[in-house]
C-alpha cells in the first residue's frame, strides 16, 4: 500500500519539478539527454579502483540541483532506494578481494575500495537520470526521442503508458485498500484470488483501451501520430552541451583532485 502511494507521490514530485522554468529547464531536452548520456558514459568508463578521480563528477549533479532549484530530499531518497541491489552485489567485493594496500599508515582493503567506487558511481548515475527527468519532463523528453528518430509508434505508446500510470495506480490502490479492509492481518493478496484480483483489472484495462481508441478514432486517428512543432537547438544549448562535455573530458583525462592535492601539498611543503 505505502509502496503504491509513494510511487505515485514520486511521479508527481518529478512531474511538478519538471514544470519549473529555471535556466536548466529551458535548455533543449535533446541537449540535456545527450549531456546526461555523455556524463554516464564518462563516469562508467572509470575503472573499478577509481575513487578520487570520480569526485569531480559530483559537480554536475550539484550544479544542476542548485541552478534548477531541485530540492535535494526527494532525489537523495530515490538514489538511496535504488541502492540495495548495488550494495547486494558490491558487498562481495570486500569478501572476495582481501588484498590490502597501505596509504599513509593506514591499511585499506582493495575490496572496500572497489565497493566504494561502485557506490559513488551508482550515486551520481542514478542522480543524473533523476535530474534529467526532473528538469525535462516526460513530454519534452518524448520530443527529444522523436528528434533522435525514435519511431512515433514507440513514442506515442511510451507517452500513453506514462499518462495512464496515474490512472491505474489510483485504481490499484483503491482495490488494495478495499481488499485489505476486508482481509486484515494479510501481508498481501491471498493466492486464491491472485488470478481474479489482477485479472479483473486486466479486463477493465482492455475495456478502457477500447474506449480510448474510440475517443481517438472519433478525432480521426488512423494510426499516424502527429506531433506539434518541436523547437530546434539554439547556440545556447550547444554551449551547454560542449561546456559540460569539456569539463567531463578534462576531469576524465586529468585526475583533478590529485592535481589540486599535489599542488596544495607542494605549497605546504
Amino acid at each position: 500500500m505505502s509502496n503504491i502511494k509513494s510511487s505515485l507521490y514520486n511521479l508527481r514530485v518529478l512531474d511538478d519539478l519538471a514544470r519549473k522554468e529555471t535556466s536548466i529547464h529551458l535548455v533543449h531536452p535533446l541537449t540535456k539527454l545527450l549531456t546526461t548520456v555523455v556524463f554516464l558514459t564518462v563516469v562508467l568508463s572509470f575503472g573499478r579502483y577509481e575513487i578520487v578521480g570520480l569526485l569531480p563528477f559530483f559537480f554536475y549533479p550539484i550544479v544542476i540541483i542548485t541552478v534548477a532549484e531541485i530540492p535535494l530530499g526527494p532525489i537523495l531518497k530515490r538514489v538511496l532506494l535504488a541502492m540495495p541491489f548495488i550494495i547486494g552485489i558490491g558487498i562481495f567485493n570486500p569478501v572476495f578481494d582481501q588484498q590490502t594496500m597501505s596509504a599513509f599508515g593506514l591499511i585499506f582493503s582493495k575490496g572496500w575500495v572497489t565497493f566504494l567506487s561502485i557506490l559513488i558511481k551508482s550515486c551520481v548515475c542514478v542522480g543524473a537520470s533523476l535530474l534529467l527527468i526532473a528538469t525535462t519532463g516526460m513530454d519534452s523528453l518524448a520530443a527529444a526521442l522523436r528528434m533522435l528518430k525514435v519511431p512515433k509508434i514507440f513514442v506515442l505508446q511510451l507517452l500513453l503508458t506514462y499518462r495512464y500510470i496515474y490512472v491505474l495506480i489510483e485504481e490499484i490502490s483503491h482495490m488494495m485498500l478495499a481488499y485489505s479492509l476486508r482481509a486484515p492481518r494479510q501481508r498481501g493478496i491471498h493466492p486464491r484470488v491472485w488470478g481474479s484480483f489482477v485479472g479483473q483489472l486486466i479486463l477493465r484495462t482492455f475495456d478502457r483501451a477500447q474506449r480510448i481508441y474510440d475517443s481517438m478514432a472519433l478525432r480521426n486517428f488512423n494510426g499516424e501520430y502527429h506531433t506539434g512543432k518541436i523547437d530546434k537547438n539554439c547556440w545556447k544549448d550547444m554551449v551547454y552541451l560542449f561546456g559540460w562535455c569539456l569539463f567531463f573530458i578534462i576531469a576524465r583525462t586529468n585526475n583533478l583532485p590529485m592535481l589540486i592535492g599535489s599542488f596544495i601539498t607542494k605549497v605546504v611543503n
Partner: peptide
C-alpha cells in the same frame, strides 16, 4: 493496438 499497448503498459 496502440492505445492497448500504452494502457496495458501502465497496468
Amino acid at each position: 493496438k496502440i492505445p492497448l499497448m500504452g494502457v496495458i503498459g501502465a497496468f
